[in-house]
């Protein structure tokens, strides 16, 4: 069973006036088949955690380890991490002009699986997956994320997750900017993947709203670059009622 292990992770970014530490010792273990929610206020470093695991060049790992089944993730290039089974659904997916969705998806699936999928079954698979996310087949011919609405971009991210079948998927605020219908469609997609038992999901969110549709096994409260509280789904309910204030104050006085 695949396990993503994050140990005492410290990460900084280059800010004006020198490096600024954003992550200050994160410990987290996500196993295949589990669903974790990371919840935290704006600017607490949730995306930084996601990007650092995916290998975005902007972030510098100053100490700590990240392993996938014991393999050193931090030593891998971005594409190697994806091929090793990590997936990041981005908070702000990037537009890639000139590259069609269908060409992008097929190239990506070919890279991750190590061989090109058979044309006939592939087209069917892509269509079925798009259909399940209520995506118009015309999207296949559009350029990657170009001119997509916020909701369309998020569906496209989940589509990629469904087609790439990662071992561990990090979903960075996939719920933000979605109306209720889109939220349901996207949540169903996540649940389909999670229910296979083959994927460990790390759901990053600011709001508890998505947790009405996706039931996490574990909830982690993230404040000021580290996890400050952990529990089961009941922790999300408490956050829904009380907000983050208590944790922010505690972190500030710590």
């Amino acid at each position: 069973m695949a396990t993503l292990d994050i140990r005492d992770l410290h990460v900084s970014v280059n800010a004006e006036g020198g490096p600024r530490e954003i992550l200050r010792g994160v410990d987290l273990t996500v196993k295949q088949g589990e669903t974790h929610a990371i919840m935290g206020p704006n600017g607490s470093g949730k995306s930084t955690l996601a990007y650092s695991v995916a290998g975005h060049p902007k972030y510098t790992i100053t100490s700590g380890t990240v392993t996938l089944d014991g393999e050193d993730v931090l030593a891998m290039t971005v594409d190697q991490r994806a091929r090793a089974g990590l997936f990041l659904a981005m908070q702000y997916p990037v537009e890639v002009p000139g590259v069609s969705v269908s060409n992008f998806l097929r190239t990506s699936v070919t890279a991750v699986k190590g061989e090109a999928p058979k044309l006939r079954t592939w087209v069917k698979e892509m269509r079925t997956a798009m259909d399940a996310l209520s995506m118009d087949p015309a999207f296949a011919e559009r350029n990657v994320n170009e001119g997509f609405s916020g909701g369309e971009k998020k569906r496209h991210e989940i589509l990629q997750m469904e087609l790439l079948k990662p071992k561990i998927a990090i979903l960075d605020e996939t719920d933000s900017g979605l109306d209720v219908d889109a939220l349901k469609v996207v949540s169903e997609g996540v649940n389909r993947v999670a229910s296979s038992g083959e994927v460990g999901v790390l759901l990053i969110t600011h709001y508890t709203r998505i947790l009405r549709y996706i039931r996490p096994d574990f909830v982690h409260v993230f404040v000021d670059g580290r996890i400050v509280a952990e529990g089961g789904p009941e922790l999300a309910d408490a956050l829904e009622a009380d907000g983050y204030d208590r944790y922010i104050k505690a972190a500030a006085s710590a």
Binding site: A54, G55, H56, P57, T77, V78, D79, R81, A82, R83, F87, L88, M90, P93, V94, E95, V96, G98, V99, N103, F104, T107, S108, A111, V112, V144, Q160, L164
Partner: peptide, 19 residues
């Protein structure tokens, strides 16, 4: 853009060619 494509498993040279 390169990061996005690489994060989908696509090696840098293939990503550049794709674009």
């Amino acid at each position: 853009q390169l990061f996005y494509l690489q994060s989908r498993g696509i090696p840098a040279d293939v990503a550049t060619r794709l674009v």
